[in-house]
Every structure is written in C-alpha cells, then in structure tokens.
C-alpha cells in the first residue's frame, strides 16, 4: 500500500477516504444509540462503550500479531463495535459483549483479511453467534417503562405505533427508536454514502409479505431489528451487491426471508439470519445483475464456462 506509483495525469480522485465514510456512519448511528441510552439508562452506555472499546482493541491487537499495516484509524472497527452494541439487549453481561466483538473483528473480519475481504457482515455473524451461545441472556428484554425484565419478545407485545416509533418499548439497545434510525438513514442517503435501494426494497417486500399474510405491516416494520438491519447492515459496502439491480434483489430477498423466519421460525427475530443468508448469496447476485455495456455481446468462451 505504501508503494503506490503515480502515473501521468489525468488522475481519478476517490470521492471519500474510508475513515470519512465510517465517520458519517458513526454520526448516523449516534441518534439511535443516544435514544437507546435515554430509554435504557446508564447500562446501555456502558454496554456500548464495552463493545466499541473491545472492537478497537481486537482490531489493534490482530493487526499487530499478523504484522500488517495498522488499520484502527479507518474507524471501521468502531462502527462494527457500535453497531454490535446496538444489536444487543441492554442488560447483556459485559464479557459476552466482548466475546461478540471478538467474533466480529477477529473471526469474521481479520481472519479473512481485514476490511473489504470479509464474506459476511461482522456484526450480523457476531449477533448470531451470541444468540446461539447465550440464548437466555440475548432474549431477556427489559421494558423501559416498568424496568422489569420480561422474556416476551418485542414482536408480540401490543405496543402502540407511537411508542414503537419513539422507541418506548422493550428490545435491543439501538433498534427500538424507529425515528432515530430513519433520521440516520436519511442523513447517510443525503451525504451519498448509501443508496436507498436496499433499505426500501427490504422494508417494502417485508411489509408486503406481512400484509398478504394478514398481519399488521406497520407494527411489524417498526418493531424488532428490521429498520436497523435494513438501513445499516443491508447497505454495508463489502457484503452487499454493487449494482442497483443487485441491491434491490438483495433487499427483496432479505425482506422475504425475514418475514418467513418471523412468521414460521423458532427464533423471535429473523433479520440477522436473513441478512447473513443474503450476504452469502451476494457474489451470485452480483453475477446475475452485472450491467452489460451497450452494444456488446457476451464473449463465447464465457458462455461455455457458465454452462459447465
């Protein structure tokens, strides 16, 4: 990376460096994280600082042990940590949160070669690993009004639309306040960081499926981790398709899978499983949604290869 050759002009200028994009994502996540801290108290703040701190620590340590260029400065570890913290119930034991950031940063990201090489979204895999390992702690949601730990999932409690919209319900730390998540998404869209294709098709296809199945689409969209997943995890650059067509396909697939898992599955929430499955399909989506240059034909040998 340090030995870049400068060729003759004209030079193409990359629009934004990585750390700048990550800073924008951090800013966009802040309102929802702040809403979570207001709703759930200091414990939420403590959990978020543990996930962000350990994520940065693991990244730093990994790059040193692997003798690679230090990449803590690109802030991607901080984004992963914050996003992970927002995906956890606020009363999760802190050591479990540290295990989560270990899985996200070391197992999913650094062992596959660092930012840009990971096959799946680190936050999603970490959340699924924690869910499978510590099912009881991961589903102990606290109602912010009564401060009582209830095992009921946010998907089955009958909260009003307004409570769901403002985040005044039980759930994971950063997923309850729909208003803050949508504001963050709009900010990222206006800054040109994310394209609205994947989030809109994700939420849209999910709402359509829910409506066809005879459930209340608005309440289902506002509850659980759907908005957090659709806005911040289905728009990850590394693990989602590159083309607009591909992004829409990704969103539709994710929305339909989420509906299927929520409606028929054994787990209370299906967003993370849906995003992981779509992450794995991303190379194939990229392949079928590739834009063909106008007026060209497919080379012959490629046709032979795709048939084989």
């Amino acid at each position: 990376m340090n030995q870049m050759l400068v060729s003759a002009s004209p030079h193409e200028r990359a629009p934004l460096p990585t750390w700048h994009i990550m800073l924008c994502v951090l800013l966009a996540l802040l309102p929802a994280a702040a809403a979570g801290c207001v709703n759930f108290g200091y414990r939420a703040l403590l959990l978020l600082s543990v996930t962000v701190g350990t994520a940065i620590f693991w990244e730093f340590l990994c790059r040193i042990i692997m003798k690679r260029e230090q990449t803590v400065g690109d802030l991607s570890a901080a984004v992963t940590g914050l996003l992970l913290g927002m995906n956890l119930p606020p009363d999760l034991p802190l050591w479990q949160a540290a295990v989560g950031s270990f899985v996200a940063i070391v197992v999913v990201k650094q062992l596959f070669g660092g930012l840009g090489q990971n096959f799946a979204n680190p936050t999603v895999v970490a959340r699924i690993v924690l869910m499978l390992s510590f099912t009881a702690d991961m589903t102990a949601f606290r109602d912010p009004n009564t401060d009582a730990v209830s095992s009921a999932t946010p998907l089955v409690t009958g909260a009003s639309y307004w409570d769901l919209f403002l985040g005044n319900t039980a759930g994971c730390l950063g997923e309850t306040c729909a208003l803050a998540l949508i504001l963050g998404g709009i900010y990222l869209w206006l800054r040109g960081i994310i394209s609205p294709a994947a989030p809109l098709s994700f939420v849209g296809s999910f709402a359509l499926c829910t409506w066809l199945a005879g459930n209340d689409p608005l309440s289902q969209v506002l509850s659980g981790g759907l908005l957090l997943g659709a806005i911040f995890m289905a728009t990850d650059y590394v693990t989602t398709p590159l083309t607009a067509k591909g992004k829409i396909l990704f969103g539709i697939g994710g929305g339909c899978l989420t509906f299927v898992i929520r409606q028929f599955g054994g787990y209370p929430e299906g967003v993370s499983f849906a995003i992981l499955l779509m992450n794995l399909l991303t190379p194939y989506i990229d392949r079928i949604s590739m834009t063909k240059p106008f007026g060209t034909t497919e080379p012959r040998e490629k046709e032979v290869r795709s048939d084989a």
Binding site: V99, V107, V129, L132, S133, F134
Partner: peptide, 15 residues
C-alpha cells in the same frame, strides 16, 4: 457460567 455453547454446535467445531 462462562461457556460459549456455540462451540459444541457444528460451526464452532469447524472454528
């Protein structure tokens, strides 16, 4: 109290 039960499942075995 400090066990990570995903390691007894297939993905943890691979890891």
């Amino acid at each position: 109290s400090y066990s990570v039960s995903v390691l007894t499942l297939a993905p943890g075995g691979f890891f």
